[in-house]
Amino acid sequence: MNIQEGHSRWGSRGTARASIAAGLDFKAIACAFDGQAILNDISFSIEPGEIVSLLGASGAGKTTLLRITAGIEVPTSGSLYLNGKIVAGEGVFIPPEARNVGLMFQDYALFPHLSILGNVKFGLRDLPQKAADIEARAALDRVGLSDYADHFPHMLSGGQQQRVALARAIAPRPSILLMDEPFSGLDNRLRDRVRDETIAVLREIGATCVIVTHDPEEALRVSDRILLLKGGHIVQYAEPEELYYNPVDHWAARFFSDLNEVDGVVRGGLVHTPIGRFDAEGFEDGQEALVCIRQQGVRLHKAINKEYVSALPARIKRRMFLGEIDLYEISLKDCSEPFFVRSSSGHNFMKGENIGVSFRKKDVLIFAK
């Protein structure tokens, strides 16, 4: 019978053993399998100690890029540098074991025939037995599993197995830690806690960390910078707030937010739409544009004496209770498209109620159509 996650706590914060972080430079990396391009012209840098997420939909090239970083895959062209030293490309290839890189896989890849301590010690085979034992037990202590050293993986819950995999990855004190969707196998109840504790460990050890994820909220939550990939190309590489508030294109905006979208035409520096006019700096007169408004950037107002103050007239079509927020579908005057609003105001608007709406400026994004 599995031991439940709630029966063991994480170790004390600030006790993880530090690594010496390394920087990474990717220069025109490309990779193809059987003639099919997986990555194209990937060029970016990661500073020592940064946590960077590789984000994108399935097939974007995230895991391939991670495997190239680890040395499991060889790029078709381009070069990879670790602390300024080439490790792949230009006729050079440094194998994984010589890169001081830690790996943590989506399925944890624990050895069922080894004890928890044995699993953690597996990456410490170059150390004398006593030193390996000390390092492994220190890593287990940091993730709160020192009491389970003699157990086997099948005796632990999924969350605890994830923690064993983390302990095994950090025990050798890697310069770079690579994680392939490390939280996707956990249920929603555990994911936030395990993720937050894992990031705390990563910050403590100081290693450079690259995390593959398809979850934009997760990437925003854990990253110093995010590399957004689509079809093997870089769409945008930026800090979370920059990527969220200043997406480079419509696709990037939709990847991070549920949007209401309205067509418009630019005249006199403004986009004219059925729901109002919006600033359109940098657009030409007559150009067609797409106004995108995040659902959480729409504010609902009560109607007072059938008048609306600084708000467009609208009507509630339906309300959906989602726990901490309400999701409303509303109809706006002169707009044929349905509008959706995520509201945490605490006021319940009723179906059929006449209301007003306004838009938060930073949640209005405009793109050329």
Rank of each mutant, 00 (worst) to 15 (best):
S12R: 13
G23Q: 07
L24T: 04
A30T: 00
C31P: 07
C31F: 05
L39V: 05
D41Q: 13
E47N: 07
K62T: 01
L65R: 04
I68H: 06
S77N: 06
S79R: 12
Y81K: 01
N83G: 06
N83H: 08
V101S: 06
V101R: 00
V101Q: 02
F105L: 08
Q106V: 12
A109C: 08
F111E: 03
F111V: 07
F111Q: 09
H113N: 13
L114A: 03
I116L: 10
G118Q: 06
K121F: 11
I134G: 09
A138C: 14
D150Y: 11
D150F: 06
L156Y: 15
S157T: 11
R163Y: 11
A167Y: 09
I170G: 07
E181K: 08
S184L: 15
R193Y: 07
R195N: 15
G206T: 00
C209L: 12
V222W: 02
V222F: 07
L228V: 01
A238D: 09
N246F: 12
P247K: 00
P247A: 05
F255T: 00
N260I: 07
E261Q: 08
D263I: 14
D263E: 14
G264K: 13
L270F: 03
A280I: 05
E281W: 05
E284F: 13
Q287P: 09
K302P: 06
K306S: 10
A311G: 05
P313A: 08
A314V: 01
L322G: 05
D326K: 15
L327M: 09
Y328E: 10
E329C: 15
F349H: 07
R360H: 04
